[in-house]
């Protein structure tokens, strides 16, 4: 599974992307966040305030209960500020 970080979430993560292999049982974005945040201090910092974290699965906006699985591209980012 490919994880992408954008804007200041990338700054906090200290990287723009990584590949992860979550254990069986991680089936939604919300569960993935729990698992990532428990992984190390930087990830914990990325997800410290989840109210400002938005996400996309395979380049579509997603919700916490959106399913994720092997081969998916999951992106985390703050609310968008384009235009």
């Amino acid at each position: 599974m490919k994880i992408l970080y954008f804007a200041w979430l990338r700054d906090k993560a200290g990287m723009s992307e990584c590949d992860v292999s979550p254990p069986p049982g991680i089936a939604t974005v919300g569960q993935l966040i729990d698992w990532l945040a428990a992984g190390d201090d930087r990830q914990a910092e990325v997800f410290a305030d989840r109210s400002v974290v938005r996400f996309a699965v395979n380049q579509d906006f997603a919700e916490a209960d959106t399913p994720v699985g092997p081969g998916d591209e999951v992106a985390f980012f703050p609310p968008v500020t384009g235009g």
């Binding site: 954008f6 804007a7 996309a56 906006f61 992106a75 980012f77 703050p78 968008v80 500020t81 384009g82 235009g83």
Partner: peptide, 14 residues
């Protein structure tokens, strides 16, 4: 178009 892309297009300004 402008109102929608402001909230739906994944851009971030620094």
């Amino acid at each position: 178009l402008m109102d929608w892309l402001k909230t739906e297009a994944p851009f971030w300004k620094r």
